[in-house]
């Protein structure tokens, strides 16, 4: 089945696991893939695409070994194939300049400051995935019970028709 993937890019294993745990309530409908750095993220992205799935949301740390998170988000925004991915920076150490670059050049959708709360992360992921499915999916019904149902209903009201 064609699934939507949440890609988490975080180098510290404990933090990565914590994010994955906090996203558990989404795993019934979405697949969570973990990457430890940008290189790894590219590999995951390739696997996802070859498997017929696609990434809908990238949750990305900034300070990573090797390439920086913001640079990767800019790269995602420049490629036509990955532009529709919702981009969220989840970090404690992005300076003002990096953040500005993320907003202007990566079309950043949200900034989550560490440490985050489960509720906050949930709300952000729910909201971003709702935006993604409204923009990219024909059939919204499978997502009503897990994402922002009221907003999905409004979108369905616009495009739904009697058969």
């Amino acid at each position: 089945m064609n699934r939507i993937v949440i890609l988490v890019i975080e180098d510290e294993p404990e933090v990565r696991e914590a994010i994955a745990r906090d996203l558990q309530s989404f795993t019934g409908h979405f697949q969570v893939e973990l990457a430890e750095d940008v290189q790894d993220a590219r590999t995951v992205m390739d696997e996802v695409t070859t498997g017929g799935d696609r990434v809908g949301l990238a949750l990305c740390d900034h300070l990573l070994p090797g390439e920086r998170g913001v640079d990767y988000l800019v790269e995602l925004n420049e490629e036509a194939a990955t532009r529709s991915i919702r981009k969220v920076l989840i970090t404690g150490q992005a300076g003002l300049e990096d953040t500005i670059r993320a907003v202007n050049e990566a079309d950043l959708d949200h900034y989550v400051a560490k440490p985050w709360t489960v509720e906050n992360l949930h709300d952000v992921v729910r909201g971003q995935l709702t935006d993604f499915v409204i923009d990219n999916e024909d059939d919204l019904l499978p997502y009503v019970s897990v994402l922002d149902g009221a907003r999905l209903m409004a979108a369905i009201a616009e495009r739904g028709f009697d058969r």
Binding site: M153, A154, I156, A157, E158, G160, F161, D162
Partner: peptide
């Protein structure tokens, strides 16, 4: 439409 009404 019944559908749009329901969703609204």
């Amino acid at each position: 439409s019944n559908t749009a009404t329901t969703a609204t």
